[in-house]
Computed example of a mutant assay.
Amino acid sequence: MINRDDLGSWLEGPRFDREEDDWPGKRLGLPVNGSHSLAPAWKRILALLVDWLMCLTIANLIDPANPILAPAIFALENFVLVGTLGYSVGHRIFGIEVRRLDGHVPGLLKSFIRAVLVVLVVPALIFNRDNRGVHDLAAGTVILRR
């Protein structure tokens, strides 16, 4: 027989029981907070919003009737800036950066993989216990605080 506790646990969603000394990024050797720890989700989302609005504005100035121009500019921005500098305009504003797991700038190949998956949107919404989206897992990158 099903009791109320069974329904309550189902409605509450999955439980992520973590030990007290466990945090997102620990398995990657990252500190719990401070410089070079994982960037919080709110900074990543706001950086994405800044980048998207900037690219949308540029696309509307160039050709407002072209629906592919804004995502193309967004992908190009991510590909070039993240691949060479390790951050986009939005990342820079919010003090976060994209790095490979060894701490170096991603480079053009990893940046290309990451940019393609970010433009597809859905891979960026699926993430693991270390708050790394599918785009970061596929590219071998992580978003850190500066």
Results as ranks from 00 to 15, higher is better:
I2Y: 11
I2V: 13
N3L: 06
N3Q: 11
L7C: 00
G8H: 07
W10K: 12
W10C: 04
P14C: 03
P14D: 14
F16H: 11
F16T: 08
R18D: 11
E20K: 06
D21Q: 13
D21C: 00
D22H: 04
L28R: 00
G29E: 09
N33P: 00
G34Y: 01
G34K: 06
G34E: 05
S35P: 02
S35H: 09
H36R: 14
H36M: 14
S37F: 06
P40D: 15
I45K: 02
L48M: 14
D51L: 09
W52I: 10
L53F: 14
C55L: 07
I58M: 15
A59F: 08
D63V: 00
P64G: 07
I68M: 12
L69C: 05
A72G: 10
A75F: 05
L76D: 01
E77W: 06
F79N: 08
L81D: 01
G86L: 06
R92G: 07
I93V: 15
F94K: 10
G95T: 09
G107V: 02
L108E: 05
L109R: 15
K110V: 04
R114S: 13
A115Y: 04
P123M: 09
P123L: 07
R132Q: 15
L137Q: 05
L137N: 00
A138R: 05
A139N: 08
